[in-house]
């Protein structure tokens, strides 16, 4: 069971969009933004509140790539593998992140819950390919080396 405060937060978010079936996606987006993942219990709760079946809510949540039932790291690193970035060699950057953090195509989040590494197709900054987004900040013209620097920088960030 989740703590009470989660449901309170959900209630607030639900109130913002209204108890109607079409509010499902924005509500889930806000919950995900709040906790960096979508707690399953909250999904069930939201479904009930807005009057849709649990299986429908689950169905919608699993359709879209952005929703995750697993907790994500503090820093969500999205390596762009859109066309522009791909042709400017984004694959080695992804590899560099994964290697440094001990992650893989299957394992996305480090055990210390600091980093999650995913790929994304185009961040809209193709002119600066290859790009990487950390939380909401876009980093341009990446190289495998600058990827490692970025990790060090972010790690240091935790200590202060």
């Amino acid at each position: 069971m989740l703590e009470e405060c989660y449901y309170k937060k959900a209630d607030e978010i639900i109130a913002g969009y209204g108890k109607k079936p079409s509010s499902l996606i924005p509500i889930m987006q806000d919950i995900q933004a709040e906790y960096r993942y979508l707690p399953g219990e909250l999904l069930t709760y939201v479904a009930k509140q807005i009057g849709i079946s649990e299986s429908k809510a689950y169905s919608v949540a699993t359709f879209y790539e952005n929703f995750s039932f697993e907790e994500k790291g503090k820093y969500v690193i999205k390596v762009c593998d859109g066309t522009a970035c791909h042709v400017r060699k984004s694959a080695p950057i992804l590899e560099a992140f994964q290697k440094e953090l001990g992650l893989s195509a299957k394992k996305h989040t480090t055990d210390d819950m600091l980093f999650t590494v995913e790929t994304v197709s185009c961040l809209g900054a193709c002119g600066l390919a290859p790009t990487v987004m950390v939380n909401e900040e876009v980093h341009p013209k990446m190289t495998p080396e600058s990827a490692l620097e970025l990790i060090h920088e972010l790690r240091g960030d935790r200590n202060d």
Binding site: P21, S22, S23, I25, M28, Q29, V60, F67
Partner: peptide
């Protein structure tokens, strides 16, 4: 304004409207 949630296929018209309505973008 509706924000997408990570599905290219939602650019297709009927998937897009399905998504606005709160459904799977099929």
């Amino acid at each position: 304004i509706n924000r997408g949630a990570g599905a290219f296929v939602c650019g297709e018209g009927s998937a897009l409207t399905a998504s606005i309505e709160g459904n799977r973008g099929m």
